[in-house]
Nucleic acid binder design. Structure first.
Lengths: 201, 201
DNA sequence: ACCTGAACACCGTTCAAGT
DNA sequence: ACCTGAACACCGTTCAAGT
């Protein structure tokens, strides 16, 4: 039954959401499903395959292309990925470390390709701009939810006045951050790059 | 002794390089150092702290700012980070998941801030552009070495003709990739964005 | 001050056995 | 066909003991 596999993957995601990625063990997932650890193996072949399955499950929740406005499609995908990171911060890390070759991942990439082509980006630049776009979006969303953008770390705060001169020069702009606005500004900047390639000159 | 700590971290990095991040266990690191597992604890407080120490060790190898040409400094840092990813692909993943609050990390960020200020970027935009820049560089370098940019996956190749229309339209540009040239092109595009903010209008 | 060894509560996975 | 339980070779970490 394919339902059972989905049930297992959902249990794994819930476990990651509640207790972090380290808590996702075959034994814990099995306990949550109400079965012995060994009963998982016919549905997910191994621990690594379980993690891949979680990635697939996540990507499956991305909205389908509506093919009306391609430019809006890019933005929509970016927002959906960031929302995914916020909804499943621990599991999101898997997106960055496991190759995007699952059907759902390939479909999302194909959608970005189509959007770039529709806008008028030459075919030779489409794969590069997709990778630049996805690298940024995944890198930003992951950094945001994993705490890499630690603006208010006490350890950092203490050192600001001393050996970090540029930090000092920038002052309050370091700590007063509207993350939603920042993400939008980044997307606008990236769109400007893409527009330059769509209409060169 | 602080030498001992460094020795432990080097052993952990070597282990990650040779056998992957999963092979970095307290027991394996201790064995490599030639000591019992418990002897590590005075130097690295826990397994998590060991991983943080590895990040610090990696960042410590980044070149220091030379303060001659700030624009070149940004490029140099980007190249150094990508080189780090290639030299330590497994350990590089830690850079993306652990907050950049260690002294070395803060120093690297301060250096980028100074570079942006020197170029003429307004203070209000400096932190955002640094995060955009670092998110892209880390996202790209990680994707590249972790295999996320899987252009020649057989599973993907098989599906290209069928349900991935945009992939089909792009053709050979999908598989013939010069990664060095692509990274340079991305950096040029990002530099163009930054230049727009340095001299608005 | 620094290290060790036994012990505890966990892992992923194999394998033989049950229904 | 699907599941279980015992077993194996591992984990991180605590704690008492050694020098």
């Amino acid at each position: 039954m394919d339902d059972k596999r989905r049930q297992i993957l959902e249990a794994a995601l819930a476990l990651a959401d509640e207790e972090g990625l380290d808590a996702v063990s075959m034994r814990a997932v099995a306990a949550r499903v109400g079965v012995s650890p060994m009963a998982l193996y016919p549905y997910v072949g191994s621990k690594a395959a379980l993690l891949d399955g979680m990635v697939g499950q996540l990507l499956g929740t991305l909205p389908r292309p509506d093919a009306t406005d391609s430019r809006a499609g890019l933005q929509e995908l970016a927002h959906a990925l960031r929302a995914l990171a916020k909804a499943h911060p621990a599991a999101f890390a898997l997106l960055l470390s496991r190759p995007s070759v699952t059907p759902d991942a390939a479909r999302a990439v194909d959608r970005v390709y189509q959007g770039l082509l529709d806008i008028g980006v030459p075919r030779s630049e489409v794969p590069r701009l997709e990778r630049m776009f996805s690298s940024f979006v995944l890198g930003f969303a992951h950094s945001e939810v994993s705490g890499r953008f630690a603006v208010d770390d006490p350890q950092l705060r203490r050192r600001r006045g001393t050996d970090l001169p540029a930090h000092q020069a920038i002052g309050s702009y370091l700590t007063d951050v509207d993350w939603d606005a920042e993400f939008e500004a980044d997307l606008r900047d990236l769109e400007a790059i893409i527009a330059r390639w769509a209409a060169p000159g």
